[in-house]
């Protein structure tokens, strides 16, 4: 028995805007304290509008835990940003000192996020250990730098493997079947396009600047290059590069990760097209700038609607037979960890 189920996203831009603007107002009024509650409220709205079959997802995080996590991060990040103001040497020293914390934050953030996501009464879970995370975060960064980026696709694949196989739906672990080739293909394509973009962009910019300075006429003295053109041009090249990385590389990696994830015999498929993502990101960025940020909630819904609707599950069995994990059973008996830190961070 095999059957395809598409994920559906039923959130509405205006509805989310109303939740968002109330969240913003209360966050500003409470000097940021409400932000943890705001986060949970917005997340619950989004999760509650993601459907698989006849069931929506659910987000159950405790805002107090998130607030605690944010205060902790603030405690760490404020000295770092102060160091940055004083000198770059202090700043990099501070970043280096923080490195041992990175794997801890990654593991805590992911397990907090997964444990508080629920589908059909079963919570997800993440069991990754500090030392595994240490290998796939700070150490693999170092490896990428030493090999001039050549090891990067490999370490990203291994990191995906780690993130997926340590995740569980209830007591059932996910598995990962991704191969290494697509990762190298995605990174090599990105490198080639960025190279062409920079070389072509800088060449075009110089040509344009030469043309405008010649246009000033022979009696204008020594050619004065238009600095403004140079700055605007460099910014445009950087923006185009960022857009390409977002719309192509990140999108590709996300698709691979999902499409190579298995839960028992069930397969997932995420099929995102580069032109669509490029259009979504470009138009969102333009509209966010033009509306002084008021478009942010609509932008989020637009991207999520496309991504969620492009995701489907090839089911080999009914959704009935999954069992809850131990953590959920412990949490349910009231022994909820009181000192839990809700860290959310995207690396």
């Amino acid at each position: 028995m095999s059957q395809a189920g598409r994920l559906r996203f039923t959130a509405d831009g205006w509805e989310y805007f109303r939740i968002w603007i109330v969240n913003v107002a209360l966050t500003l009024l409470t000097l940021g304290i409400y932000s943890a509650w705001a986060k949970v409220r917005a997340r619950r709205y989004l999760y509650g509008n993601v459907w698989l079959g006849d069931d929506a997802f659910d987000y159950t995080a405790n805002p107090v835990a998130i607030l605690r996590g944010r205060l902790l991060l603030l405690l760490v990040l404020v000295p770092v940003s102060l160091a940055q103001r004083i000198s770059l040497v202090y700043y990099y020293a501070a970043l280096l000192l923080l490195m041992p914390l990175v794997p801890w934050v990654v593991v805590r953030a992911r397990s907090f996020h997964m444990r508080n996501s629920r589908y059909r009464g079963i919570a997800f879970d993440f069991r990754g250990k500090y030392w595994d995370a240490a290998v796939w975060y700070p150490l693999s960064w170092a490896a990428s730098i030493v090999t001039l980026g050549l090891a990067r696709p490999l370490t990203v694949r291994q990191r995906d493997d780690f993130l997926v196989t340590e995740s569980r739906f209830g007591s059932t672990p996910f598995s990962f079947v991704g191969r290494i080739r697509p990762y190298y293909k995605a990174y090599l394509t990105t490198a080639a396009v960025l190279f062409l973009l920079y070389v072509g962009g800088v060449f075009g910019l110089l040509l344009l600047m030469a043309a405008t300075s010649l246009g000033a006429g022979p009696d204008a003295g020594p050619p004065a290059f238009d600095m403004r053109l140079f700055f605007v041009g460099s910014l445009a090249i950087a923006a185009a590069a960022t857009l390409f990385i977002l719309a192509f590389l990140r999108t590709r990696l996300l698709s691979y990760r999902w499409s190579n994830t298995r839960l028992r015999e069930n397969e997932f498929l995420l099929d995102l097209s580069f032109p669509t993502m490029l259009w979504l990101y470009t138009s969102n960025a333009a509209l966010i700038v033009a509306t002084f940020g008021l478009f942010v909630p609509f932008a989020r819904i637009r991207v999520l609607r496309y991504v969620v609707n492009q995701c489907s599950v090839l089911k080999k069995e009914g959704p009935e037979s999954f069992e809850a994990g131990e953590t959920q059973r412990v949490a349910a008996t009231g022994a909820e960890a009181a000192g839990e830190f809700g860290l959310e961070i995207g690396i």
């Binding site: 913003v24 932000s35 705001a38 917005a42 960025a285 700038v289 940020g293």
Partner: peptide, 20 residues
């Protein structure tokens, strides 16, 4: 900083503050 509170995201804040 205040604009980050407004949009809830530092990178989005950088975008939405461009105009103002």
């Amino acid at each position: 900083i205040i604009w980050t509170a407004f949009t809830g995201d530092a990178s989005v804040a950088a975008l939405s503050i461009l105009g103002p």
